[in-house]
Design a protein around this nucleic acid. Structure first.
Lengths: 284, 284
DNA sequence: CGCGCGTTTGAGTCCATTCAAACCTGGTGG
DNA sequence: CCACCAGGTTTGAATGGACTCAAACGCGCG
């Protein structure tokens, strides 16, 4: 039935009933939320933390995250906006498809995957997020989340409530702009991924995946040459439109060819240029 | 080298030098526009038309396009915002990757494809737009277009300048909200397409493609059962991550199986339910 | 008419998948 | 401490679906 075996992630609450759309059915804006009463997200599990620790102005990620490009004054205003943080254990879900989308989230630490699910339960991972990146932008359309967000390890997110953001918007045009940028970036990212899934062969996809990860980790101050993967082979495969076996084989081959060294989830990149050549990034 | 033959669209100005990014390189915000001086888009080809014909308030598409969900008063304010329209001949480009992105565009009539291009000239079509849909949202990130927009037939777009929109924003919060929705929709659309490219087999992809088109045309008041394709087999193939031959074979097979009738670019859908079952939209 | 372009159809190949078995690792309980 | 188990991972062999290469066809156009 499917080109690849159905990727069936562990479900903590049984099958989700609200995955009823496909493609641009969204454009209709017609179908009411058929998923029954809209659930309130995780409300009980939220904790307010000591104020000074949630400040954007003192956050190490403020050069990467939402405040990117803002003036000091504007960042100070951001501090009013972000009152809550949220701890997420490994495997925990930040939100699920169909939840009300009344906030966006800045990932503070850890890593999170986002995935969508169609009516058949077929799942597609749409992104692996690293600290400083913002989640929940895809839910702004319908006021309902259209994807699941699941922690790959213990993680922590900052919560930015939409209504409070709208209130603050007039005084903080730079936030609107930055938000627009982030959404635009998300669109660009999906498009690049589309290009990968649509036209790259498996080895190119994996090479590009590793390079992408390496680069993003470097931005965060980590070594671009060695890192540990937070996701399983199966998740990588799903993300790249491949099977876990293919991914595993490619890892082995890359290692055999001296491009990387890999044991389990620990990856050492030995030949960055070689990977780039493989991925097709390197032009000419 | 590539999984599918390189799709090489006719280029009106030779190879484009600015397609230097890959995936989330965008996140860096570091690399300067390496494409030389940023070009001004199509400025000389723009024409101002009789004011009453550009009014959102009298536009037939105002229930679908940007003004969707706005009050009558807000739509009236939109009228001030949209002062220009732009005629685009078949094959003409509205903007190219690397152009300054200082406006977004509402498609008034015709149809447009958007495509991205990587350093190797590899192209991926990211969308086929119909009237009432909005282009240019992906360029808001960098203030530079990250995709090409090319007309599939003679088309007409409304121009919404970003600086004017920002000026009007405080008085028109519903516009901000709607813009956010549209961007969010675009993200959702890409994600759905990702799911298709990542996990659907060829026949499912084409079936889903036809259903999607059918549905969007219906929203516009056209028959969902018969329409003519504005794009070539090659363009469909590129969009769906298939070769033109595969697409052609699938059309033939669908026709043989009584799902559709097709001659050249004219498509009649005979068995909508069959197509839905095939695409996997139909659940259970 | 002849040409170019898009499309259709066929035959053969190859790459990723499927199915299957063995392996490694970490955690649990005896 | 070790045996055992479960889940993730690796590797092999065989299959099949989409691709490549190729040729013929149809249509519009100068």
């Amino acid at each position: 039935m499917f080109r690849q075996r159905t990727y069936n992630p562990s479900r903590d609450q049984g099958p989700f009933p609200g995955a009823h759309f496909f493609w641009q059915v969204l454009i209709l804006l017609a179908d009411p939320p058929s998923s029954g009463p809209i659930r309130r997200i995780n409300a009980p599990r939220r904790i307010a933390v000591a104020p000074e620790s949630t400040r954007c102005s003192t956050c190490m990620l403020n050069a990467i995250c939402l405040p990117l490009g803002m003036t000091r004054q504007d960042v100070a205003k951001m501090d009013e906006l972000i009152k809550e943080r949220f701890r997420l254990p490994k495997g925990g879900t930040l939100y699920r498809q169909g939840d009300v989308a009344d906030a966006i989230y800045g990932l503070r630490s850890g890593s999170i995957k986002t995935q969508i699910e169609d009516a058949n339960g077929q799942v597609q991972i749409t992104g692996f997020l690293l600290p400083g990146e913002v989640l929940g932008l895809d839910g702004l359309m319908t006021d309902q989340q259209v994807s699941h967000a699941i922690a790959l390890e213990d993680s922590e997110v900052c919560i930015i409530r939409l209504d409070e953001m709208d209130q603050l918007a007039p005084q903080l045009p730079s936030l609107q702009r930055q938000l627009r940028r982030l959404m635009s970036k998300e669109i660009g990212r999906s498009h690049q991924l589309l290009l990968a899934l649509g036209s790259l062969r498996s080895e190119q996809r994996l090479a590009a995946f590793l390079l992408n990860l390496s680069q993003r980790l470097q931005v965060l101050g980590y070594s671009p040459y060695e890192f540990i993967l937070r996701m399983s082979r199966e998740e990588i495969g799903n993300f790249l439109g491949l099977t876990l076996e293919t991914v595993s084989r490619l890892f082995s081959r890359f290692a055999r060819e001296g491009l990387i060294r890999v044991q389990q989830r620990e990856v050492h990149i030995l030949d960055m240029a070689g990977l780039q050549a493989l991925s097709g990034t390197d032009c000419s």
